[in-house]
Each structure stands twice: as structure tokens, then as C-alpha cells.
Design a binder for these strands. Structure first.
Length: 878
RNA sequence: GCGAGGGUGGCUGAGCUAGGCCAAAAGCGGCGGGCUUAAGACCCGCUCCCGUAGGGGUCCAUGGGUUCGAAUCCCAUCCCUCGCACCA
């Protein structure tokens, strides 16, 4: 298909084999503190898609860059191999999840290899193997030992299509759809195993502040998810039903409480159903928690306000949620929007108790005033500001307590599916649930049975066992773990994937962790990343891991789109990586993706972009091929000096950009260098050593992203060994000086063009570029440093300047006028040199000889116009 | 509603966390030129307005402010994207 381009197929195959043979991506166990670069491991669907390619190209390029800079690098890959799709696929294809999964893994590993991703495959992990998941079971035991596992009946999210429970995090949007299959989620009451992530809620939220290597958006999402709120629990007496605690963040508004409300499934509501027909009617028929309107029914009960002693009417209301706060609340219609709506609807009093300030009156008849302010109508507390009042009211009130509430719930990990880690518990009629002893781990999955329910229920031989405690008859727990348990610690397993007596080697993990750069999709902002942080903290507390956070730097990579929308099978707008590799090669695909946009931004895949990237690689290939140092007999002239300075500038910029993972900018530089080299060869006979260095530099700078062709060209240029192991090019160029030089050259060329155009010069005979006299640089320096009100006086103190007479006075006036904007740029010699080196560009463009001259060698009226950073230009017409 | 991030020249999109080097990078598209039998590719320019020597004008969502000076800082408004949401 692309017969015009270089032969990517043979190049890529050759080096993939060579790397493999030389084992170049291996990270030996004895290296010390390698740079740990990790992409989120994939679910082995059997098909590598563009999102994967982008994700793993980022980590691969970064890993290669670090390796070339002499770092030891840990860059492993594995498989998030448990999960429901395997069960569905097995049913469809009449096979079993294990065979299907391993087939998929083999296919995907092959696809990754064809992309040239450099992984240490000796560290590959596969979560569906007993040697991995036994450590999930071990982890479950350890969590249990530390009191962080709990079994309880719970109202759970149930996906009828997946036939399993979902964590809150796995239910999406207002419509409450399953994150995997978009089926509306139902509620069910089931006995569930929970991991008490809430015990870590405070640290999980507080430590976010220190995670400076994470995007703000992700940190904010986690903060929201954890949802910490400081407030007060107040005890309300309800006669005949005892004390009911109500949580409020606004204890300062307690004098404005005019009703009390209970959730429909609150125990008291449930009791009232039996005796109160209206409550029964409401709870069973009218309640509409999904609706926008708050609905409720008045009961015969009253609740005693613990601060004022007032009796408040008690309602059962559907906007009160049993899993928020205590499932009961005090209603303050004057200062809460929703309470206001409800009170208006039910005809409850609305009393203002907070005013914006001392003097202000507040009108709450139409809408609530929800800001903090000053208390009014609040007895002894009137006149206090909201914050103080909250504190005092809480302190003064018997039974009131400062309370912190979280939105975060414990992590329900029970899944009623086959293809997951069996929860290592046996249920004994005598002893209840008993943990499977450590010595009997792993509890391995039985053979798959194709059935409608949970295959583990159907596996009778497996299910029926004896109690480890009393030896009596017992059955195994048939629930398996959420696969997020697998991924909550897999990054630790890579450190010692074969270890048989612990999940990971502690000493090595202490040395190698945390992951220096983690890369993956934003969809894991809460779930996976929160669980991983939780489990890491647990390992720190329980197992002596010396790190409390797993990922130092996190990059959430953007989407790969087609025509502005996400690629997806359902939309049928998928570009297959395999086809691109076939047609253009992995290097083209990788380079195109990396240069198209910053890694965190979405970008559009375009056929045109791919073609032009391929054409670029082909041009580079041809340029290297056609270069013969023997026949390149050019001098080391001004042009060569220019090319050299460009090589150095390119290295300086590209290196910085690679460091910050802004590959797009680094690659633009590298591509710019190739263009410069082509122009060089086009314009004159190149100087062999300079040209050679330029080509080598371009190849090295491109190699992290386009490794195959880089190997081939590196070899062609006489490089030793693999480019993978080559040293990153060095330059002593300073980026800002390099940029000053480029700007000077660009501005000067621009000026020449403008003059020629505006003055209507058709065919210039000669172009003189005159650098400003040295004393002006000196004067500029003085002016920048001076804080005298008028710089001219100060300048005239300097003999060297003073003797310039009127010229000095004129320039001094200019400097004074622009006083605040002045800054020192290049020195006179640097300017002269930069311009001399770039003169050929002007010559070539206007086909006229260019002289770059010092002020001393030029005519006085011309020199007068030259200033530092802005040479005078004199164009001679025939 | 709450929170986060944004609104830049025909389009895409840098710069804006350290205000002056910003009429504002780069790419695309468009225009002109070179190369070529020709097309493509490639190379060189131009692409807000005015201007016969590098000048001037207007400009970075809108309106105000700070400053000698603002795309860059502050305030308000409008719009967009994302996350959370009857959260007490």
C-alpha cells in the first residue's frame, strides 16, 4: 500500500526480534531505585485499541528516554484478567473463561510487541492465575485480622444484566446505569463483604494536598467523592421513640428549625407504617425519591428541639435519605433551599434566624438565606456570627457532638460471579463464616460450569467442604471479589512477581516504590486510584511498607477521537491499530499520536496526519541513507556553525520537554532539526562531521517514540549497539539563550522582508546587517540595573558612553522612555555570531550577498539605528 | 445548585502559574513563487487593516479595575466541558 515509503515491515520485525534476543528491557532484581514507569494494565479483551496504544506509547517513550539518560527503569506489563466479559464470551463461544482469557492475552501481548513496547516480560503478571489471586485472598485475611473487613446485610446496587452487585463507584450518572453494560441498576438486600476504606477517609482526603504530581481535577474528584463534612449531631427527643440523632452542618440555625423529618425507611417510619394509615400510604405509594419535588406526610409525633425545647412536627419525607447523615434531619426552611420548598408546600412556619449582618433584616418568605451571617431570634446566641454560634451551641447542648460525616461508603467487594478471586471464607452452620486458613490458600476456582446463575453455586463438589474450625459440614462462600481488589496492589507485585511467601518483597518494594510516573485513563480517577491509595496505606500500616502513596506522578491521558467524538465500537468509528501498523508501521502510529497533542488532551485521529508522519519518517530515512561522510566535503563554515547551534538548541529544548512529558513539543523540535538539515544539504555541500552529528541527534531524539526506525538509522550512521541503550545527546546550550538567538535571527529576517516589500525593492544588490556598537550594550545594562529617576545622568558618568556625545544622549532618551520594559539579551559578540551564522538564510531568500558587520566598520548614519537585539539593516539597490 | 477546568487570529492550538522580547509559536486550510513534461511530494514566502526602509492602528469571550505597561494579575457577567448532586 505504501510502496513509496521506507520498508517499515522489515525494519520493525528485525528490531523486535533483536531486542527480544538481547533482552534489552529486562530490569534485574538487584538494581537500586529504578525509575518506575507504569501504564494501567489492560483488561485482556483480545484487541489492542487506540486508547491503549496512546497510553502505552506515553509510558514507553518516557521509559526509553529515562533509560537513555542512564537511569535504571522498571517498565512492566500485566493483565487485569478477571471480569465478567470473559464469562459472557465463554458462554457465547462454548468455551470457558480461562481459555478465552489466555487466548486474548496471547493475542494482545503479540499486538503490544508489534507496537514495539519495551516491557520486561519476565515480570508479567496475570491476575486470574492462582499464583496472583492467592495474594488477594491473603490480603483479605490480613485486612480481616486488622479489623478492616466486615460482613453485613446491605442494600446494594444490583445489575440485572450482569447479575451482580456493583460498588457505588460503578454506578453512573443520574439514571444510575451499570458502568459496564449501561443497564439501569436496581437495589437489592444482600449479605455482603465490605472493606472498611472509610477508616482511611481522613488520610485519603488530607494526603491529596501533598500529591502535587497529580492533576487537580483528579484530586478534586477524590475530594468530592470522599465528601468530608464537619457538623454537629443533635439529639431530638421523640416521645415514645426515644432519642433520634440528626446531623447538621448548620447548628447555628437551630432556632429556625420548624419541623423534623425522617427517611421513609427510617426505623421509626417503618414502625409508624403499622399504625398510621397516612404514613403507610405515603411510604408505599407516594414516595418518589427520584422526583424533584420534596414529598412528605405529617405524623402525629413531635420532636423536641434540644436547644430551644420547642416541639417540632415530625414528617416522613422522601428527600431524606437513610444513607445520608443519620437518615433524620431538622428542617430549617429559613436557611435551606430544599427545606424552604418543603415547608411552603406543607404549610410549616418559616422563621429567619440568620441575617447578613447585625443591622440587616432578612426576608425569607420567598426563598431561604443560605449564607453564614449573624444570628437573630436566637435567644442568648443572637448577635453571634454563624461560626462562633455553631461552636457554642454544640458545646452548650447536652448530648450534642461535633461530628464529621463522609460521603464515602465502605467498599463492598462481593460479586456473585464466577470469574474472580474466591472470597476465602467457609460458612459453617455451627461457627458461622470462618476464614480459610493461610495454609490452605489459595482457594482455587473450580472448573467453569455453564449455568444461568453463579457457576460457583452450581459447583457442588467445590462448594461443599468442611469447617476449618470445627471440622463439621460447611459450604464455601460463593461470592468472588470485585476485580478492583486485584488492581489495588498489582503495581507492588511487579517488584517480585514470582515470590511465593508474600505478595511482594518488602525491602525491594521499599526501594523501588512508589511508581514515579503512572499513566492511564481519567475514568479511573476515583475507583482504581482511590482503592490503590487505600491498600497502599494499609500495607504501610500493617506490613511495613515505607510508602503511603502508590503513585507520585499521575498523567490522565486524553482520548483518541475520530471527527471529534470518542472512538467506540458502537459508533463504528474505530481505527484499528493493527491496520495502521500493517500499512504505515508502529513507528508512524506512535509518532503521529505523540506529536498530535499533549498527552492529557484529546485529539483527532486523521488519515492525513498519519500519512504526513509516515512521509516525514521516509524523508528522514532517505536523508540518512543518502548521506555519505566520504563524499561530504563541505567546510566548517558559517552555515555549519548555524546548523551546530541549532543542533544544540534542539537538544536543550527537546530534553526539557521529554522530562515534562510534553512529547509534542519535543518532537516538533526534532522534526524541525531534520528540516534544517535538509535545507543545509540543499543549500550547500555539508560539513561531514556537523551533518553526521545533526542526523545522529535527530535519530536519538526521535528514538523514544519511533524506536524501530531509530535503531535502523542509528546503525546506518555507525552507532554502536542499540539505540535503546545509547546515551541521550547532550548540549551545553542554554535554552533561553538559544531562544534569544532564534528570535534575533527571525526578527532580523522579518525586518529585511518588510523593508524590501514596503520599499518596493525588486532586486537588492547587497544587504548589510550592522550590529550595534558595544557602548549601547553597556548603556542598556546600566539602564536595566539603575534605579535613578533619570538614567541619562547616570549614563553620562561613564566616560566610554559620554564620549559618544549626541548619540549617547539620543540613545539615553530612548532608554529612559522605555525604562520599565528594558531587559538584557545577547551580548554584542553573541549577536554578531548568531547573525553571521544565519546570514546564509537571508542570502538564500533574497539572492543577494549579506554582510554582517560591527558598528566600527559601518557608516555612522546606519549605526545610529542599531540597538542591542535589533541590528541596523541597510539594503543597497543596484 | 456545588466544585474543577476552559473561552486566543478562517480552523486546530501554544502562550497565560515568574505582567513588558506578543500582531501573538506551531500545524491545517487558503494565496503566490520555486522544482517538475505535469500532478503529488518537497522547498521558499504571504495570510487583521493601512503604509514606497524595519512605521502606525485595531486585537486574545464581555464589561470594569490594578499598573508606566495586561492575552497574561483582580472583580463581575455570559458561554462551554467535566465531576458530584434532593448530602441535611
Amino acid at each position: 500500500m505504501n510502496d513509496d515509503g521506507y520498508d517499515h515491515r522489515s525494519v520493525e520485525r528485525r528490531y523486535q526480534e533483536a531486542w527480544d534476543e538481547a533482552d534489552v528491557y529486562r530490569t534485574p532484581d538487584d538494581v537500586s531505585d529504578p525509575t518506575y514507569v507504569l501504564g494501567m494494565y489492560p483488561y485482556p479483551s483480545g484487541e489492542l485499541h487506540m486508547g491503549h496504544v496512546r497510553n502505552y506509547t506515553i509510558t514507553d517513550a518516557y521509559a526509553r528516554f529515562n533509560r537513555m539518560r542512564g537511569e535504571d527503569v522498571l517498565h512492566p506489563m500485566g493483565w487485569d484478567a478477571f471480569g465478567l466479559p470473559a464469562e459472557n464470551a465463554a458462554k457465547e463461544r462454548d468455551t470457558n473463561p480461562r481459555d478465552w482469557t489466555f487466548d486474548c492475552i496471547d493475542t494482545m501481548r503479540g499486538q503490544m510487541e508489534s507496537m514495539g513496547f519495551g516491557y520486561d516480560w519476565d515480570r508479567e503478571i496475570t491476575t486470574c492465575t492462582p499464583k496472583y489471586y492467592r495474594w488477594n485472598q491473603w490480603l483479605f485475611r490480613r485486612l480481616h485480622e486488622e479489623g478492616l473487613v466486615e460482613q453485613r446485610d446491605a442494600e446494594v446496587n444490583w445489575c440485572p444484566d450482569c447479575e451482580t452487585v456493583l460498588a457505588d463507584e460503578q454506578v453512573e450518572g443520574e439514571a444510575e446505569l451499570c458502568w459496564r453494560c449501561d443497564t439501569p441498576v436496581e437495589q437489592r438486600e444482600l449479605e455482603q463483604w465490605f472493606l472498611k476504606i472509610t477508616e482511611y477517609a481522613n488520610e485519603l482526603i488530607d494526603a491529596l494536598d501533598e500529591l502535587e504530581g497529580w492533576p487537580d481535577s483528579v484530586r478534586q474528584m477524590q475530594r468530592n467523592w470522599i465528601g468530608r463534612q464537619y457538623g454537629t449531631t443533635l439529639p431530638f427527643e421523640i416521645d415514645g421513640h426515644g432519642t433520634v440523632e440528626a446531623f447538621t452542618t448548620r447548628a447555628d440555625t437551630v432556632y429556625g428549625a420548624t419541623f423534623f423529618a425522617l427517611a421513609p425507611d427510617h426505623p421509626i417510619s417503618q414502625e409508624l407504617i403499622k399504625t398510621d394509615d397516612e404514613v403507610h400510604e405515603f411510604v408505599h405509594h407516594e414516595t418518589d425519591p427520584e422526583g424533584d419535588e420534596p414529598n412528605g406526610v405529617r405524623t402525629d409525633l413531635t420532636a423536641t428541639n434540644p436547644v430551644t425545647g420547642e416541639e417540632l412536627p415530625v414528617f416522613v419525607a422522601d428527600f431524606v435519605l437513610s444513607d445520608v447523615g443519620t437518615g433524620a434531619l431538622m428542617g430549617v426552611p429559613g436557611h435551606d433551599d430544599r427545606d424552604h420548598v418543603f415547608a411552603t408546600k406543607m404549610g410549616v412556619d418559616i422563621v429567619p434566624v440568620i441575617a447578613p449582618s447585625d443591622e440587616d433584616d432578612v426576608d425569607v418568605s420567598e426563598s431561604a438565606f443560605t449564607d453564614d451571617g449573624v444570628l437573630i431570634n436566637s435567644g442568648e446566641y443572637s448577635g453571634l456570627d454563624s461560626e462562633t454560634a455553631r461552636k457554642e451551641i454544640t458545646e452548650d447542648t447536652e448530648g450534642a457532638e461535633l461530628t464529621t460525616q463522609y460521603r464515602l461508603r465502605d467498599w463492598g467487594i462481593s460479586r456473585q460471579r464466577y470469574w474472580g478471586t474466591p472470597i476465602p471464607v467457609v460458612r459453617c452452620s455451627e461457627c458461622g463464616p470462618v476464614l480459610v486458613p493461610k495454609s490452605e490458600l489459595p482457594v482455587e476456582l473450580p472448573e467453569f460450569v455453564n449455568t444461568t446463575g453463579n457457576p460457583l453455586d452450581a459447583a457442588t463438589d467445590w462448594k461443599e467442604t468442611t469447617c476449618p474450625k470445627c471440622g463439621g459440614e460447611a459450604v464455601r462462600e460463593t461470592d468472588t471479589m470485585d476485580t478492583f481488589v486485584d488492581s489495588s496492589w498489582y503495581f507492588l507485585r511487579y517488584v517480585s512477581p514470582e515470590l511465593t511467601d508474600a505478595p511482594f518483597d518488602l525491602d525491594r518494594a521499599n526501594d523501588w516504590m512508589p511508581v514515579d510516573q503512572y499513566v492511564g485513563g481519567i475514568e479511573h480517577a476515583v475507583m482504581h486510584l482511590l482503592y490503590s491509595r487505600f491498600i497502599t496505606k494499609f500495607f504501610a500500616d500493617a506490613e511495613g511498607l515505607e510508602h503511603r502513596e502508590p503513585f507520585t506522578n499521575l498523567l490522565a491521558q486524553g482520548m483518541v477521537q475520530l471527527d471529534g467524538s470518542k472512538m467506540s465500537k458502537s459508533k463504528g468509528n474505530v481505527v484499528s491499530p493493527q491496520e495502521i501498523v500493517e500499512d504505515y508501521g508502529a513507528d508512524t502510529a506512535r509518532l503521529f499520536m505523540m506529536q498530535a497533542a499533549q498527552p492529557e488532551r484529546a485529539f483527532d485521529w486523521t488519515e492525513e496526519g498519519v500519512r504526513s508522519t509516515y512521509a516525514f519518517l521516509t524523508r528522514l530515512y532517505d536523508l540518512v541513507e543518502s548521506f555519505d561522510p566520504e563524499t561530504a566535503t563541505g567546510e566548517h563554515d558559517a552555515v555549519a556553525a548555524y546548523v551546530e547551534s541549532e543542533i544544540d538548541a534542539t537538544i536543550a529544548v527537546a530534553t526539557e520537554e521529554y522530562e515534562s512529558l510534553t512529547f509534542n513539543i519535543a518532537l516538533r523540535e526534532a522534526q524541525g532539526l531534520v528540516r534544517t538539515l535538509r535545507q543545509y544539504a540543499d543549500y550547500t555541500e555539508p560539513h561531514a562531521a556537523t551533518f553526521q552529528r545533526g542526523l545522529e541527534t535527530a535519530v536519538l531524539l526521535l528514538s523514544p517514540v519511533a524506536p524501530h526506525i531509530a535503531e535502523s538509522l542509528y546503525d546506518e550512521l555507525g552507532g554502536e549497539g542499540f539505540v535503546v541503550n545509547a546515551a541521550w545527546p547532550e548540549s551545553d546550550a542554554d535554552r533561553s539563550t538559544a531562544e534569544d538567538r532564534r528570535r534575533l535571527v527571525e526578527n532580523t529576517r522579518e525586518d529585511v522582508r518588510q523593508i524590501i516589500e514596503v520599499a518596493g525593492i525588486d532586486d537588492p544588490e547587497r544587504i548589510d546587517v550592522v550590529v550595534a556598537p558595544e557602548w549601547k550594550y553597556r548603556a542598556l545594562e546600566v539602564a536595566v540595573e539603575s534605579d535613578a529617576p533619570n538614567v541619562i545622568g547616570e549614563l553620562m558618568q561613564i566616560p566610554e558612553i559620554k564620549k559618544q556625545g549626541q548619540a549617547a544622549a539620543d540613545y539615553g532618551k530612548d532608554l529612559q522612555a522605555e525604562r520599565e520594559a528594558l531587559s538584557v539579551g545577547l551580548a554584542v559578540d553573541e549577536e554578531y555570531e548568531a547573525l553571521s551564522a544565519a546570514a546564509w538564510l537571508i542570502e538564500r531568500e533574497f539572492d543577494a550577498p549579506v554582510r554582517v558587520v560591527h558598528a566600527a566598520d559601518a557608516d555612522e548614519s546606519t549605526v545610529a539605528k542599531a540597538t542591542p537585539g535589533r541590528p541596523a539593516i541597510d539594503i543597497l539597490e543596484p
